[in-house]
Structure formats: C-alpha cells, structure tokens
C-alpha cells in the first residue's frame, strides 16, 4: 500500500489518493471537483448573494426580508387582474348600451363575449343548483327545456336573475303554492281526487271516476293560478300542469305531496352580488342553453 503526502492511502488501480472513507471494502477516491462543476458552484454562490439582496429571501419573526426590488407575486397578480378587468369593462359596458338584448345575440362578437363571460359566471354561481349544463334537478328548474315558470325571454331571465324568486329582495318574484292538506283546505280524499284530475289533464294514466270528482275541486282551488285548463300562467309563476315537464316530478305520489304540503323553492337575488353587465351576459348565456323563448 502506497501512502500520499497527506498520509492517505493511494489506490493502486487508478493511482489516486483515497479519502480514507471505506464502506464494505469500497474506498472513496479523493478526486478534485471538475472545473466546470466548480465554476457553476461559484457562480451559483454569487448569484444567490445577489438574489438575497434583490428578492424576498429571509423569513423574520413578524414578516420577511422584502429585498431591494420589493418583488411581490401577490401584488403582481392584483395588478394583472386589474388590467384584465379594465380591459373587460370596456366590452362589458357595450352589453348595457344595446337597446334590446336580442341585439346582443344578433352581433356575433357581443354574443361570443357574453357566452364566454356568462359561461364562467354560470359555472361559479348557478351550476350548483341548476347543474353544469343547466339541466336542473328535482326542485331546481331545468334551463334547457321549453317550459318556463316565470318566462324564458331574455328580459324575463334578466328580471329573475336581478331579484330572485321568493328571495329576500323587496322586488322579488313571489307566489305561493299553498299546503292544501297541511293547512286543512282539502281533505286527504279530496287531494287524491285532485291528483287524479291533474294526472288526467297531463295525459297520464288516471282513475276516471276520481278525476271527475277532482275536476270541480280543481276549478275551485287551483284555476286562479294554474288557469281553467291547467296550462299555468307565467305572469303569476304558475307552472303548466298539462305537459310532460315537472319541476318536482309528475308521479302520483309526488303530485299528492305537492298538493298536500305546498311548494316554495327559493332562487336568491343577484342584483347586489353581480354587476348589471354580468347579469346581462348571464341572461344571454342562460337563454342560449336551449330553453330560451
């Protein structure tokens, strides 16, 4: 075994001094670092010192060292967002300058813009109840079919969005489907008869005798809102009972439950939470989902 000046063993095979470290007979050669590696290492050290001075680096007890450039990603995002919003507000204002909202749909550029803005607003605010595609769920109206309780024109949709339905806003759309059973307005038997009558006018299987008994009860209790023929009234927010679309369901048991307990779903008002421009864009988007009148 040859020994180097530093009293370290020299590896016979390579002729290089070892560090004296040994693991299971494997010894570490004491080669110097390659030059390119050293250069990168020293450049990195110098770089890091410059970085500490210029950029936020060291944490402190109450905050952190901000660096001479006072760089802040948080502020950069705020600035970038403000710039985007400023640019958007120009186009957004155009949405309010049209005389009627159908103009927006006639203008490919405004339409495209409303669809993009409305689409993201819908996803953020509406999809939770109405579904990602506006398909609705029992109790939450579908926005893609052709039945509208309060009206499906652009202006009616806009009105609903602004003030809601049975919301806490003073201008809210409001009506009451009474709890005929719970409040004792009709007996259980009478409710069953009215249910059979509703099944009959909506074209479903029904007991003809019971339906005949229910007809005068319907005329007495229901026609003021739902109309003599049961086709509903959008001005009052009374649904059409004669077609194949049901908000809560068209089964006998669900209809019976609806008549017994009444219904009172709430749509919140958005006039405080969204800007007028956003509500216009959202109205156009909802109208374009397929159900718009």
């Amino acid at each position: 075994m040859t020994v180097s000046e530093n009293n370290n063993e020299i590896d016979d095979f390579t002729g290089v001094e070892t560090t004296g470290h040994e693991w299971d007979g494997v010894k570490e050669l004491n080669n110097p670092m390659p030059r390119w590696w050293l250069i990168i290492f020293y450049v990195s050290v110098i770089w890091s010192i410059g970085y500490w001075v210029l950029m936020p680096s060291w944490p402190g007890l109450t905050g952190y060292l901000k660096g001479t450039r006072e760089h802040s990603e948080r502020e950069n995002v705020d600035v970038a967002l403000a710039a985007v919003n400023a640019e958007r507000s120009v186009q957004m204002k155009q949405l309010l300058s049209v005389s009627s909202m159908t103009e927006i749909e006639r203008d490919p550029q405004l339409l495209e813009y409303s669809m993009a803005a409305g689409g993201s607003l819908f996803g953020d605010n509406c999809a939770t109840c109405h579904g990602a595609g506006g398909q609705g769920f029992p109790g939450y109206p579908s926005l893609v079919d052709d039945e509208w309780i309060w009206g499906g024109s652009l202006d009616e949709i806009r009105q609903t969005l602004h003030f809601g339905i049975r919301s806490t806003h003073p201008d809210t759309r409001l009506n009451i489907m009474q709890a005929f059973g719970r409040d004792g307005l009709l007996t259980r038997e009478q409710i069953s008869d009215v249910t059979e009558y509703v099944l009959d006018i909506s074209g479903q299987d029904s007991d003809a005798e019971a339906a005949a008994r229910g007809a005068p009860l319907f005329a007495q209790q229901c026609t003021s809102c739902h109309g003599v023929d049961g086709r509903g009234n959008q001005a009052l927010g009374a649904p059409n009972l004669t077609d194949g679309i049901w908000l809560y369901g068209g089964d006998p048991s669900v209809i019976r439950q609806t008549i017994y307990n009444g219904r009172g779903g709430v749509m919140p008002f958005w006039t405080d939470r969204l800007t007028d421009e956003q509500i216009v864009a959202l109205s156009v988007y909802v109208h374009s989902l397929g159900g718009g009148e």
Binding site: G133, Q135, S142, V144, D145, D146, E147, G244, G290, G291
Partner: peptide, 18 residues
Amino acid sequence: RDRTPPYVKLSDGAIRNA
C-alpha cells in the same frame, strides 16, 4: 355536442340536441 345534458326532452315529447 352538449354533454350535460346529452339530450333534452321538450314539453311536447320532442327531443332536442344542442
């Protein structure tokens, strides 16, 4: 083609795709 919902049943029983 719209996927949510894949098709819409209208009040008169007609089917619509978007």
